[in-house]
Design a binder for these strands. Sequence first.
DNA 1: TAGGATTCGTTCGAATTCGAACCAGCTGAA
DNA 2: TTCAGCTGGTTCGAATTCGAACGAATCCTA
Lengths: 173, 173
Amino acid sequence: MAAGDFESRWLPADVNAVWTRFLRVTHRLEHQIDRRLQEQHDLTLTQYEILVRLADTDEGAMRMSDLADRIVTAKSAVTYQVNKLSAKGLAERNKCDEDNRGIWVALTTAGSERLEKAAPCILSLVRELFLDAINCDQAAELDKLLGIWSDNLDERDRNSIPFVHEDLPAEAA
Amino acid sequence: MAAGDFESRWLPADVNAVWTRFLRVTHRLEHQIDRRLQEQHDLTLTQYEILVRLADTDEGAMRMSDLADRIVTAKSAVTYQVNKLSAKGLAERNKCDEDNRGIWVALTTAGSERLEKAAPCILSLVRELFLDAINCDQAAELDKLLGIWSDNLDERDRNSIPFVHEDLPAEAA
DNA sequence: TAGGATTCGTTCGAATTCGAACCAGCTGAA
DNA sequence: TTCAGCTGGTTCGAATTCGAACGAATCCTA
């Protein structure tokens, strides 16, 4: 449209293209991993994610809310999935002494074992699809990008910015 | 575990960290956009995606299957969403002369208008969260990465590679 | 040109996700 | 101390997604 905004902005077509491509690639990646996980380890990607999050902690346990925050889903979805995992015997819910409302979700032995079996398989798939194809510099760059986006999102959350898109700032001739 | 594979491979912890971070960031990005879209334009991200895909074609129409392929969902989900859009008057289903089984999904005038209203808003949010924060070189790099991953996935699909993770190739001492 | 294999799109049921409403426990200020 | 407000988690109903099964149309091959 206007012809003077080349340095800091992208042209609409470019933005659209990159974003579209980004969405498509991420979805395809997730689908591949998810499918593999279900076929070979009877786990959903979400369930696997929960197990990984739990295993990543020092205490081997996490509060429901923190879990929800980490895996980026609604609290109710976490309740649902943790129940599922608990029914499978892979995780357990323990009451929380510091706060009687709270729940500590912990990995069971079976959960650890399942994770130990699944993780190498998944990580190798992740490597193959996602990381092996790029070199060290690119990987570093990717990591930097992820950091930037993450900070960006944090900031937005912190301020809970009320996004408004001004249609036309009423100053174009 | 073994200690000799440092150059082309990542350490498990790194892979895990990058992948985790990637998943989290992409989910947060999508949620932000999705929420905005629903609040301000009464559209799901999927629905918006469909409208964009349709608008991107020369004919302003697309076959159901191609749509499913583009937005990376099951065909049944496309049926569901196109029905939804059709009920809203934003898209229409036309029969296909070349193939009597087929359906051409086309944008209606209302659909174009809705998209024209929503797109700037969404693109500006995408810019803000996703692209403005990175410089031109990084953007170019990102584009390259997306290309690599995409090709990778294409290849895998083409050969429908039967993924097997050999637990230990039985040659480590 | 008949018949098996594919492909196109739909339908159905199951799984998952979300948000709103809710209850119970915690916190802070009067 | 008490009461209003907040926070952690669950429940419920609605929306969405998936995959399997299906019918119809097309393609391919003999």
